[in-house]
Amino acid sequence: MAMFIRVDVDNSVIEKTSGLAQKLVEVCPVKIFKPGSAPNTVEVVEENVDECTLCDLCMQATEGVKVVKLYE
């Protein structure tokens, strides 16, 4: 569905740091992350992905997230 951006999440990295999942949910200005079904994990909200502002706040928070521009 997203045409321009892909957000890859590696939950095995994220669950290692307590509170990180919650931080990702809060830090993204366009609500791309929501709490996953397992504790300390996140899920990507697919319909918001093309709204990504490339603010890098998620990637600054963890190596477990990669934001990829599909147009380059």
């Binding site: 045409m3 321009f4 093309d50 709204e51 502002t53």
Partner: peptide
């Protein structure tokens, strides 16, 4: 206003 976000929206709408 960001040129890239406008470009994304316009292209998505047309497509």
């Amino acid at each position: 206003t960001r040129a890239d976000l406008v470009a994304r929206g316009v292209i998505k709408g047309i497509t």
